[in-house]
Design a protein around this nucleic acid. Structure first.
Lengths: 345, 345
DNA sequence: TTACGCGATGTTTACGTAAACATCCAGGCG
DNA sequence: CGCCTGGATGTTTACGTAAACATCGCGTAA
């Protein structure tokens, strides 16, 4: 890649300040400030002159100075481990969107590997970061065990956690969704439902498992052994090869694992949904194109993101810390991967 | 959600400044600054006293003041349309990672809908934003047609564009990847290869299509009619229902469309790969779990992200604008969705 | 006519940091 | 023994903005 000296405007070392604009417009810098912020008390003629000067100099307000002045950055930080799960990505997307709508920018704080030192590092950086509030998309126990604390004036909202007693938590109604999945299968006539769970250290996975168990017990059904995956399609495939012949219904803790499961069942010649039913969780955009289209639990990530932003902003404005958990409801999307069980041989 | 007044440290309106630390440690604020920045010329005893004071007051450097002082924010902005395509997400992830490693934060600038006014809006916000450089993940013609220009001192790197003559561009080697896909199929013995293209307004899609065409022509093969999708699995499914019986090989412009294609073919009773071969593009994590596992072109998004960050930072440090295109190579991943064509009836 | 009020604009100041410069002190050397 | 050197530390200042306060001038009511 070649490079060339930057021409034109960039020769000016620093970009134009209010003082420059003021000089050109023949007013005081305070008047420029008033125009810039749309404050009243500037006569139309002056305002026009100032605007013209701004345009000529290519004036842009300096956000550092502005932040320094009134002590806020109009920026929210988002801490997350990675963008490899659909949920995190879609939540982030919704957060970015809502934040933009409120005039806040989003600063990303990725933590590559959830080790103690990584998390500490992120929080240290965060402490120096120009943010007014933070949204944490991860298991809160990692946040707790961190030796570095959040700056006291920074407000926090947490996703995917059970720390509602200490933080404001926004989460999908994991239990409700999992219960709906199980009940859907039971209603179709299945005697019981197997569960392909997510990794045991995930709160979301835990809650889905709990609800699966509770739903089975309430209905007085036998509880099959628990199967574990790691959220990946590959792990669903591996587990799928082990599902016994007498199993007629599986509830997978996410759509990716359901995908792998479908492939394993296909390879084994077990037809879905005629021989065995499968339900997923998340409703990723692709799930309607699986073979067969997947019945799954739809999560409203957009709503989760919106409530997160709403929550932090409220805390920032009121200068209070909130706690409690807000649950966003789910919805079962019935497609073609579920059907009544085959008649007993 | 209940709320309670925030207790303890938060009662102090503003957090501790250097002056506060200096007072407590009995030194000047300049000495605190030196300790804070690890500058030399502070005797060990003093340093310890300052550090203790910092800890006691929970001192955090104020990044706004720091930014105001030396005119840089140590932050990069990332402009993108959405996080719904795998490529964008993984690129963003890699960017965030590399940036963090360099001590830079990432500020997200989502543009919900790529309309002119939306893009303008993002750039306006950007102008006021606290960033030293920008990475644009989108078609550059939208950037060009924007009436709002980037602040002159902000350096730019663009992904997914052909604007290498005006900007520094980093992109996957779309052509090379598409050519590899076509050549792989021809080498297996297919007479020609159909192409399920992405939306015509995408440069990435255009380039994949061009390379497909070029590879066919070079080999002197007939060129089948072009099929179009919109990147979604659903569109792949729709198109898949229309693929004629005599087609033995399809190159889909991304893995999602390939997924839909697989389903349509499955429903029509056309076996993959025995009756028809399918190749995708991207190598999303799930593609190894499709039915059958998908042969696809692997994109190294990590490398793309890394080079973006490297590029902007170099421009920032050198105070120059670069141009030219850097291509990141791809790699064909052969799985189970491709095979020699069936023997002619 | 004069003084008062109020809208328009200007001036001062502080936000927290760090570069540049100033000062102070200990020790070495003529 | 006094001066000089250099390291440690303190003081001043500027970064760009905006709140708070000051001023100016014009219209209006007594």
């Amino acid at each position: 890649m070649e490079s060339r000296a930057q021409a034109g405007a960039a020769q000016r070392r620093r970009s134009a300040s209010m003082a420059d604009v003021a000089r050109l417009a023949g007013v005081s810098s305070q008047t420029v400030s008033r125009v810039s912020n749309g404050s009243p008390g500037v006569v139309e003629d002056t305002r026009r002159r100032v605007l013209a000067a701004m345009k000529e100099l290519g004036y842009r307000p300096n956000s550092a100075a502005r932040a320094l002045k009134h002590g806020e950055f109009r920026t929210l930080g988002v801490i997350l481990f990675n963008l490899s799960t659909t949920g995190n990505v879609r939540t982030l997307e919704a957060i970015a969107d809502s934040a933009a709508r409120e005039g806040y920018a989003i600063t990303l704080l990725p933590v590559a590997i959830p080790t103690q030192s990584e998390v500490d590092g992120a929080f240290t950086r965060l402490g120096e970061l120009a943010v007014d509030g933070v949204i944490v998309i991860m298991e809160v126990h990692l946040l707790d065990s961190s030796t570095v604390s959040l700056p006291p004036h920074v407000q926090v909202v947490v996703v995917d956690s059970d720390a509602g007693d200490r933080y404001a938590v926004v989460d999908t109604d994991q239990r409700g969704g999992a219960r709906a999945a199980v009940e859907h299968l039971l209603a179709l006539g299945h005697r019981t439902v197997w569960h392909l769970a997510g990794p045991p250290d995930s709160f979301a996975a835990q809650r889905r498992t709990e609800a699966w168990l509770a739903a089975l017990k309430e209905a007085g059904r036998p509880v099959p052994p628990l199967l574990f995956g790691d959220w990946s399609a590959e792990s669903g495939y591996t587990v799928g090869k082990l599902v016994p012949e007498d199993c007629t219904a599986v509830f997978a803790a996410n759509d990716q694992m359901a995908l792998g499961l479908l492939r394993a069942l296909h390879e084994r010649g077990r037809r879905v949904p005629q021989d065995i039913s499968v339900v997923g969780f998340d409703d990723i955009p692709e799930s309607g194109s699986f073979i067969p289209p997947l019945t799954t639990v739809h999560q409203d990530f957009g709503e989760v993101g919106r409530r997160c932003v709403e929550g932090v902003l409220r805390q920032i404005r009121n200068r209070t810390a909130e706690h409690g958990t807000a649950l966003v409801p789910t919805r079962l999307v019935a497609r073609a991967s579920t059907a009544p069980p085959p008649h007993a041989g």
